[in-house]
Design a protein around this nucleic acid. Sequence first.
DNA 1: GAACAGGTGAAGT
DNA 2: ACTTCACCTGTT
Length: 273
Amino acid sequence: MDLTQAVFSIKSDFFSPLHTFECGQCFRWEPSTDATSYIGIAGKHPAKIIQIDDIVYLFSNYTNSEFWFNYFDIDRNYEPIRKAFTQNDFTIKAAEFSRGMRILRQDPWEALCSFIISQCNNIPRIKSIIKKMCEMFGSKISFMDNEFYSFPNPHALANLSENDLAPLRSGYRAAYIINAARAVSLEQVDFHALASMNLCDAEREIMKLPGVGKKVANCFLLFGLGKTDAFPVDTWIKKAAKYFDGNLNPALFGEYAGIAQQYIFYYTRSLEN
DNA sequence: GAACAGGTGAAGT
DNA sequence: ACTTCACCTGTT
């Protein structure tokens, strides 16, 4: 690999592929067979990301660095945010552990659909459902001897029946997926409008979709719309509440509560695995 | 076989 | 407002 061909390079203190891809925010970046890198796809653009010592390099046929800076939220300086999480000893440890994690700016539809699938489900099965969905209804794109599939856009799913989704083995979530795809493709759900709303209004709006409750809504708002104050409460956050006198509350963390949530989620899970 | 997994929504207190 | 339960499916 010719490192001078990288689209960008950055210190792992600022962008850690491990912490970014394993913290639970995304389902389609996987360790490569050489174990020192990740491969995945953002929109229509596959990429390979390699870390050598403390430097991270991104390789892609798509060399528009602005696209990648946006996707990886590179323009945001996480250091002052991370260091401001001094609410208690646990928070300090979680933030230290997660150094280099970045909240991806994922496609809104991909985030919404993925977290609908995630409900009451385990991670291997979530990944397998999404992978199958992309293979069946996305577009094939080749890059560096690997085949990638784009995430199917809502129009590609809107006119399908539950029976068409049966091979995904997504169970009762199939109806939610199709309904959400229809609502988005008919513009009953308007991502641009949601992005301009405050957290509370946007949450209430997206929760009108069947299968989208408070947790899925907040994952969508945080990972799909970049609302850093969104605060998904899942089983891991409920477990972590014991470190906060039982009251783990987004008000503790202000406008970056979602980032704190990811640090706490990721660190708590690491302790129990 | 039963319990569980990064929830949700409806129905019951 | 809080509790309980069913919902598909694959894994342990």
